Deep mutational scan, measured.
Amino acid sequence: QTVQFNGLEYHFPNPEEAEKFAKKVAKELGGEVRVKDGRWQID
């Protein structure tokens, strides 16, 4: 599972970890999490 933001990609072994990370980062950055092409993106 991949999380993308600021032009970087973070890879996680399972979707739960990816989701948790994506939501944490979005909260800290005040961004929005969305899934695109099977990847988590933070904008």
Rank of each mutant, 00 (worst) to 15 (best):
G31H: 11
N14W: 03
K23S: 09
K23D: 08
H11E: 07
N6M: 12
L29M: 10
Q4S: 13
V3R: 00
R39Q: 11
A22Q: 02
Q4P: 01
E32W: 06
V3L: 03
E17W: 06
D43T: 14
I42Y: 03
I42M: 03
Y10L: 09
V35Y: 15
D43R: 07
N14Y: 04
Q41S: 07
K23L: 08
E19F: 07
V33I: 12
K23H: 11
W40I: 09
L29Q: 08
K36L: 06
F5A: 05
E9V: 13
R39V: 14
K36N: 09
G30Y: 06
E9G: 01
F5T: 02
E16C: 14
G38A: 03
D37L: 02
N6S: 06
Y10K: 05
T2S: 08
H11I: 10
E32M: 12
V25R: 04
G31E: 06
P13L: 11
V3I: 05
E28N: 08
V25M: 14
H11P: 04
V25A: 06
K27S: 11
R34G: 05
D37T: 02
K20V: 07
E9W: 08
E19T: 01
Q41W: 15
E17N: 03
P15V: 12
E9K: 06
D37E: 08
G31V: 15
K23P: 02
T2W: 13
D37F: 00
Q4L: 15
G30F: 06
R39M: 13
G30V: 04
K23E: 10
E19L: 09
R34M: 10
V33N: 02
V33H: 03
L29I: 14
N14L: 05
W40E: 04
E28S: 10
K27W: 08
D43P: 03
E17Y: 04
E17V: 05
K23R: 12
G30M: 06
F5W: 12
G38T: 02
K36W: 00
W40T: 05
E17D: 12
A18R: 00
L8I: 14
G38W: 00
E9Q: 08
P15N: 09
G30D: 06
K27F: 10
V25L: 14
L8R: 13
V3N: 00
H11K: 07
I42H: 04
E32K: 12
W40R: 03
E32P: 04
A22V: 07
E16M: 09
L8H: 13
Q4V: 15
Q4W: 14
V35M: 14
G7C: 15
E19P: 02
V33A: 15
L29V: 13
P15I: 10
F21P: 02
N14H: 04
A22L: 06
G38P: 03
A18L: 03
Q41K: 04
D43Y: 14
K20P: 00
V3D: 00
V33G: 03
Q1V: 12
L29C: 15
V33E: 03
D43S: 12
L29G: 06
P13F: 08
I42V: 11
A18N: 01
F5H: 07
A18E: 02
E28Q: 12
E16Q: 11
V3Q: 00
V33C: 15
R34N: 09
G31Y: 13
P15W: 12
E32A: 11
K20L: 10
T2V: 14
E16D: 10
V35T: 06
N14A: 05
G31A: 13
R34K: 12
F12M: 01
G31C: 15
E19D: 05
F5N: 01
E17P: 00
L29W: 11
E28K: 11
G7R: 02
P13S: 13
E32Y: 11
R34Q: 10
D37K: 05
A22K: 03
E16Y: 10
F5C: 13
P15F: 11
G31R: 10
V25Y: 05
N14S: 13
F21V: 05
K24Y: 08
L29D: 04
K23V: 09
A26Q: 07
N14D: 09
Q4K: 09
R34W: 08
H11T: 09
A18G: 01
Q41N: 06
R39E: 07
V25Q: 04
K27C: 15
P13D: 14
A18S: 01
K24A: 14
E16K: 08
Q1N: 14
G38S: 05
L29H: 13
Q41P: 04
L29P: 01
P13C: 15
R39T: 09
G7K: 04
I42T: 04
K20T: 07
K20S: 10
F21D: 04
Y10E: 01
E19Q: 06
K36Y: 01
A26L: 07
L8G: 07
D37W: 00
K36P: 03
E32Q: 13
N6V: 03
R34V: 13
K27G: 09
G38L: 03
E16S: 11
E32N: 11
E16R: 08
V25S: 02
E32T: 15
Y10S: 01
T2A: 06
E9R: 05
K20N: 11
R39A: 10
V25G: 01
L29K: 05
K24F: 07
T2N: 04
V33K: 02
G30N: 09
V25H: 03
R39N: 11
L29R: 06
W40Y: 08
V33Q: 02
R34Y: 12
L8V: 13
N14G: 06
E16H: 09
E16W: 10
F21K: 03
A26M: 06
N6Y: 06
V3Y: 00
A22N: 00
K23C: 14
F21W: 11
K24S: 11
D37Q: 01
Q1H: 14
A22M: 06
F21N: 03
I42Q: 03
Y10W: 11
L8C: 15
D43C: 15
N14V: 03
A26S: 06
Y10P: 01
T2G: 02
F21S: 02
G7V: 00
G38Y: 00
P13W: 08
Q1D: 10
G7N: 07
V33R: 02
Q1T: 14
V25I: 14
D37G: 07
Q4H: 13
N6C: 15
E19I: 05
A26D: 00
T2Q: 05
E28Y: 12
F21E: 03
K20D: 12
K27D: 09
L29T: 13
F21C: 15
I42K: 03
E32D: 09
F5G: 01
V35A: 07
P15S: 12
Q4D: 09
K27N: 09
K24H: 12
V3M: 02
E28L: 14
K36Q: 11
T2H: 05
K27Y: 09
V35L: 14
P13T: 12
K20H: 10
I42A: 04
V35E: 08
V35P: 03
A18K: 02
F12K: 00
N6E: 08
K27L: 12
N6H: 12
Q1C: 15
E17H: 03
E17L: 09
E19M: 07
E16T: 10
V35R: 08
G31L: 15
R39K: 14
R34A: 08
W40P: 04
P13Q: 11
K36S: 10
E28P: 02
G7A: 02
G38M: 02
K24V: 06
Q4M: 14
L8T: 10
A22E: 02
E28D: 10
H11R: 06
E32H: 13
L8S: 08
E28A: 13
E16G: 07
K23F: 07
F12A: 00
K23T: 10
E17G: 03
G38H: 05
K27V: 08
T2L: 09
E19N: 03
P15K: 12
A18V: 00
E9L: 13
R39P: 02
D43G: 08
N6F: 08
F12P: 02
Q41C: 15
A22I: 06
R34S: 13
K36V: 15
F21H: 03
K20W: 09
K23N: 11
K27P: 01
V25F: 05
Y10G: 02
L8D: 08
T2P: 01
N6G: 10
D43A: 10
E28R: 13
K27I: 10
K36G: 05
Q4Y: 14
K24D: 10
N6D: 13
K27E: 12
P13G: 09
F5S: 02
D37S: 03
Q41V: 15
V33S: 05
P15D: 07
T2R: 07
G38N: 09
H11S: 07
A22C: 12
Q1F: 15
K24R: 10
V25N: 02
P13K: 11
K24L: 11
K24M: 12
K27M: 12
G30E: 06
V3F: 02
G7M: 03
E19A: 06
G38K: 03
W40F: 08
V35K: 08
E32L: 12
L29N: 08
P13H: 09
L29F: 13
E19W: 06
H11L: 08
E28F: 11
R34H: 11
E32C: 15
H11A: 06
Y10C: 15
K20A: 13
W40K: 04
K23Y: 09
A26G: 05
V3W: 00
P13R: 07
H11F: 13
